[in-house]
Design a protein around this nucleic acid. Structure first.
Length: 503
RNA sequence: GACUCGGUAGCUCAGCCGGUAGAGCAACGGCCUUUUAAGCCGUGGGUCCUGGGUUCGAAUCCCAGCCGGGUCACCA
């Protein structure tokens, strides 16, 4: 049994006293709510006769002034100030409900239901004059009370990140700004769904437990299925399954789902994260760029009410069209060096000049990517498409229609970070097999990122896959951009944490 | 993983040149029928993250560990 704090002991005693008084602290019957605070205030006019209304929520503040009190009720739809007068809720001789139940036994954090009519206080706040009051659920732990003064200054904020993430429920109760981040995130996700559903593309679900962790380069989480006696992996990507569905004949499929990567955690990486993947048949990556512009413009607007967001000190506009430039042009523009056509030796020289750390396992593609990451990425603040990547690092993209050594791939950068990644998908099964085999060679040389070969995926492709463009967008990063948060933990309800040590 | 900062009351923090712990809010008792960071008077509340060490004596100094934040590295 855990040791209770003084305040917890007091609340448990209050719970017992309530029971003695015949009050069930956790009643089963429905308390019918007739109004949200907003509805009530909107329809209120002081002259008109009112019907009695009822509301329910959490008691967040009590200001007792003898025989009358003000209280603050936090409902799921907004706040309402309550005015509670002893003789109005206790019209008879017995004043227990006010003197003992309300003043002593009800605590901040308790859920109550109230009935009454509105009036305007001296200071002009529309307030519910309570005629009756009912306990709906007793709270046994004290909430951290955050106070905001007349200037809007926050006092005693509940701000310890460890406590906030471990006890997100408390964070959500006392920090309305935190709660609204997740409302925006939810709107964002539903706007994405609506965008695709409106176009006739189908939301699908593909396996999370996979026998081969294909479609991306990352260390997986491993698990075991007892009945099948088989090792399985939590997916690091779903790309190869979605392409199988395109082979199966759907014109467009998308999935919004969790991916799992057993790697480092930091401000932009959580071991499980939400990825949007879209595959549309008969399209190429140019078409996909236009679609991304439409998508992000619409989603930003629906989630936040504007295409303009502020992130990390930058004003970012998601209104399309976005700047497009090839990777080689971008490098030349921001570093002054034209790396196109350079061999590995020349690229290493460039890296050395720029003081970029490289190692011997890196080929030309990786070296170019390093230069890009160092010299270009930080400058890409407004949404920018970078196109036409080296073939070595992109085993699932189609070879460029005209440029030797490149693939038809783009990434979208915003605020100096990658947000989306897309290809004209490789649909030549012979080429695909050759690319996988190249990855195997890299793996043999010690490249841990090399992609595993998936024979069933190749079999599917051999039956014929239509020309297709595919796209992935990190939903957590998009949520960060749309809510102005620079830490991924602030857009995940329950970010991964080490287990609490038992006290 | 490296470096760095932090962990003290329910919350936010002070105390850290060693001498058995403080403030504000919250809580408890009293007063108060239009308050809104309500106010006034009074009271209680602590595994000072954990474990070792130094010392007559450790929240404070030293060592190790745990948990978290930040930066970097790794990683898309």
């Amino acid at each position: 049994m855990q040791k209770l704090s003084e305040q917890e002991v007091i609340r448990r005693k209050a719970l017992e006293r309530l029971k003695e008084l015949g009050i069930n602290p956790y009643p089963a019957e429905e308390f019918v709510v007739t109004h949200t605070p907003e509805e009530a205030k909107r329809d209120y006019s002081p002259e008109e006769e009112q019907e009695e209304m009822s509301m329910a929520g959490r008691l967040m503040m009590k200001r007792v002034m003898g025989k009358a009190s003000f209280a603050e009720l936090k409902t799921p739809d907004g706040k309402m100030q309550l005015y509670i007068s002893r003789d109005e809720i206790c019209p008879e001789e017995d004043k227990t409900l006010y003197n003992e139940v309300f003043k002593r036994l009800l605590d901040i954090g308790d859920f109550i239901g109230v009935k009454g009519k509105l009036f305007t206080t001296k200071t002009g706040e529309i307030t519910l004059r309570v005629s009756s009051l009912k306990l709906l659920s007793k709270s046994l732990r004290p909430l951290p009370i955050v106070k905001v003064d007349a200037d809007g200054t926050v006092h005693d904020a509940f701000s310890d990140p460890e406590l906030r993430y471990r006890q997100r429920y408390v964070d959500l109760i006392v920090n309305p700004d935190v709660s609204s981040i997740f409302v925006k995130r939810s709107k964002m996700i539903s706007a994405v769904r609506r965008f695709f559903d409106d176009r006739g593309w189908m939301e699908v679900e593909t396996p999370i437990l996979q026998p081969i962790h294909g479609g991306a380069a990352a260390r997986p989480f491993k698990t075991h299925h007892n009945t099948l006696d088989t090792d399985l992996y939590l997916r690091i990507a779903n790309e190869l399954y979605l392409k199988r569905l395109i082979v199966g004949g759907y014109k467009g499929v998308y999935e919004i789902g969790k991916m799992f990567r057993n790697e480092g955690m930091d401000r932009t990486h959580n071991p499980e994260f939400t990825l949007l993947e879209v595959y549309i048949a008969y399209k190429d990556y140019f078409w996909m760029m236009s679609m991304v512009e439409s998508l992000l413009e619409e989603v930003a607007f629906k989630a936040t009410g504007s295409t303009l967001v502020t992130f990390d000190g930058h004003d970012i506009d998601f209104k399309g069209p976005y700047r497009r430039l090839t990777m080689m042009d971008a490098i030349e523009q921001y570093s002054g060096v034209d790396v196109s056509g350079m061999n590995e030796e020349e690229l290493r020289k460039v890296c050395k000049e720029f003081h970029i750390d490289v190692d011997n396992t890196m080929g030309t593609g990786k070296l170019i990517d390093e230069i890009f990451g160092e010299k270009v990425e930080p400058h890409l603040i407004q949404p920018t498409f970078i196109t036409d990547y080296p073939i070595e690092m992109t085993p699932l993209a189609k070879k460029h229609r005209s440029k030797e050594g490149l693939v038809e791939r783009f990434e979208l950068f915003v605020a100096g970070k990658e947000l989306a990644n897309a290809y004209s998908e490789l649909n030549d099964p012979i080429d695909q097999r050759a690319r996988f085999e190249e990855q195997l060679r890299l793996a043999e040389r010690g490249d841990e990122e090399a992609m595993a070969l998936d024979n069933d995926f190749l079999r599917a492709m051999e039956y014929g896959m239509p020309p297709t463009s595919g796209l992935g967008i990190g939903m957590d990063r998009l949520a960060m951009l749309l809510t102005g948060q620079t830490s991924i933990q602030e857009v995940l309800f329950f970010p991964q944490m080490k287990p609490e040590r038992k006290g």
